[in-house]
Design a protein around this nucleic acid. Structure first.
Lengths: 213, 213
DNA sequence: AGAAGTCTAGTCAAGTTTGACTACTTGCCG
DNA sequence: CGGCAAGTAGTCAAACTTGACTAGACTTCT
């Protein structure tokens, strides 16, 4: 699964009600276009698809005050709320998620209660450790390693990345357990969306200036 | 771009001539179904598409000796050869590639001359360093970090992974410069495909026993 | 004032990925 | 010897992603 659905659901959810362009802007604000496949086509597709599947409610709205075609506003249904949390939990706890999914998960981390966030991250560490040992076993045939040739370097890479991922996750767990951040149900929540009309301070910044593909 | 094209081209190339099922088996042999989207549909699609685009030559072959529908064998054209090396170079040198692409690149590393392999990996390290500093800048607004809230953790994750990726790459460069492995043009090449009829020693091993999605 | 550019909001065709399914053969078990 | 699991080779529809494109309204420069 890609990160799009989680990102879109999360964005709509923080607004309460949002149209595609708003979602698109939030994702850019979060830098998500840099580390995920959050392109217009994907976003609008996800919105329509999830509306069709009953996770979002679509309201047709008169053409906006500021030009452009008529908009559609979306709102989470109960099924959408459930899906959001399911995706969020999966993003945080499963080690075999691409980095974009994990990033999105971190972005919505505070929508969970503190204890659950910690539990999910601990499960993630456990998964990484298992995966690590599975990889070493798989790529270690009868005669011990060394006869693998350079293919062993693939294993090496995965082991390295599992270790580093686990280390980072442990650090995050520590910070959370140490009382950092304000989680769900702990008071004034963190608001990470652009208000109507607020400009995006990062909009024109190129994070990726060398990227000219 | 996903890793599929590189994997498929590389597999066909090592055989000289191969049909889809053979490619499918090689990828499983390499463990690629674990770390990439190498599913039957994707493989056959890639073969057909690349044949249509002139990178592969398709030969229709009589139904195999051992059951199943008629097969098609493929062979690289010159354009295919060029594409293979272009993808391989991109996979190794660009930091902003998903892990599956890098893995595939490592798998075909020895198809390049030693000096070029090192050069590409060094470029990769450079890219990672640039990306690292771009991320820290992007997520460090006027007032210094700290007012980001948990969103800073996303940055933290990317920085961590850039550092760890660079470290691993440097290690690999060292091993290669230290004389490890036999690269293109240095004598008997490493053969990483299953011969006709050879059984896959890993075929039934589950690398991922906990994965029950 | 007119041209050029940007903002808003979204569509579309082409390409890719997924996961389940087909159809035929051989090996093996009781 | 009947059946059924496993292997061989591949197809297909549905979903998703990509990158380019549309079209109106407002802004800015000359």
């Amino acid at each position: 699964m890609s990160a799009i659905r989680l990102l879109v659901l999360g964005a709509v959810r923080q607004h309460g009600r949002a149209h595609g362009y708003q979602v698109r802007n939030d994702l850019e604000y979060w830098g998500a276009h840099e580390w995920s496949n959050a392109k217009p086509g994907s976003i609008y597709h996800a919105l329509k698809q999830m509306a069709k599947q009953g996770m979002l409610l679509a309201h047709d709205i008169a053409p906006s005050t500021a030009g452009g075609p008529p908009r559609t506003e979306y709102e989470l249904t109960e099924a959408g709320e459930a899906e959001f949390f399911a995706l969020l939990r999966a993003a945080l706890s499963q080690h075999d998620q691409k980095a974009d999914v994990l990033s999105a998960g971190i972005g919505f981390l505070l929508d969970l209660p503190r204890t659950e966030a910690v539990a999910l991250l601990k499960e993630r560490v456990r998964g990484l450790e298992e995966w690590r040992s599975a990889v070493t076993e798989y790529y270690t045939p009868e005669g011990g390693p060394g006869q693998l040739g350079h293919i062993g370097e693939i294993m090496n890479m995965w082991v390295h990345s599992a270790d580093s991922g686990a280390e980072w996750t442990r650090g995050l767990i520590e910070r959370i357990e140490g009382g950092a951040y304000v989680f769900a149900g702990e008071g004034e929540p963190f608001v990470g969306v652009l208000a109507e009309g607020q400009e995006n301070p990062y909009a024109t910044r190129a994070v990726h200036p060398e990227d000219d593909r």
